[in-house]
Amino acid sequence: MNKEPIKFRKERLDRGIKARCEDIFALSSYREILYLLLPRVLPVALLLVFPLFKDIVGLYWEKVLVITCAIALLSLSWDWLASVGLISLGQALFFGVGAYVTGSLNYAFKWPPLITIPLGTLGGALICTLLLLPVLRLRGVYFAIVTLTLPLLLMRFIETTKILGGTEGLSALTPLPSLWVELYVPVFTLLICLFGFRRLINEDYGLVLQGIRDNDRAVMSGAINIYWFKTQAVFLAALVGSFPGAFMTHYYQFVGMPAFALDYSILPLTAAVLGGVGTFAGPTLGAFILVPLSEVLRAFGTLRVVFYSAILIICVVGLPEGVFHYIRRKYHQFERMVEVG
């Protein structure tokens, strides 16, 4: 009589606390409040406080924060498009068009940033949406190809026709009024966009968009004009993508061909993949890992890109789900071995 071996399997359990306290009952215990609020409040608080310590951390890192926010906004816009099923390879299009609209408005009419940045954001988003309108009817790689090509096309167009300053670009634009504006406008915009998108994707509107990603024919047979919804989604993404362009124009007091650089396409994408696609918080986190990391690695000189790419590859291969998904899973769930049989 051979004895059956005892078999084990790993069981995954929710921390449970979450189910109990998503409404008013959360107020009954400070520990539950902390459990719920900590992952949201702590990063936001850090982000808001960081500019206040500019004397301690130095102006250099404050500038890194601005660039990080810009990349984070672009990756948010990428993630928004991805959650409609449109994979974009050219966030630089949004960035560049926003930058050029703002720059030329300021250059031509000498309007202050308070007017040109909103106008540049809106105008850039409109132009991008119109440019992308023809490909929205197609499924598959077409959207990716067109978004990849358009920034390159516009860059060469400006270079050869010498409009909008040509290769030299438009310089001596109006600077932003103060350092606090420079630091806090991107931070607040990032927070508004992040939480706005997170909210919007869970509303009915967001459900339609996710439905288009999963099965557009089923959405169509639900009497919904998916092209109109896709247009709206692209407009929103272009809005969020154009803002950093418009802002950085006044920040650098310069707009030129680098606004269409491939960096602005690739960095947001890698940030989103590293952080975890589809969560909005993930791409933001990814941007806040990647951009400062690339600054830290400057110490390695020319080997910087090698280290940077190696770290990126290790992260993506090791954690294909994304850093944010991993952290969230570990935070909300725990595992234990249980006996089976």
Partner: peptide, 11 residues
């Protein structure tokens, strides 16, 4: 397992 999704156990 690679994506950290549902864990499938076969016994």
């Amino acid at each position: 397992d690679r994506r950290g999704g549902e864990r499938i156990t076969v016994l």
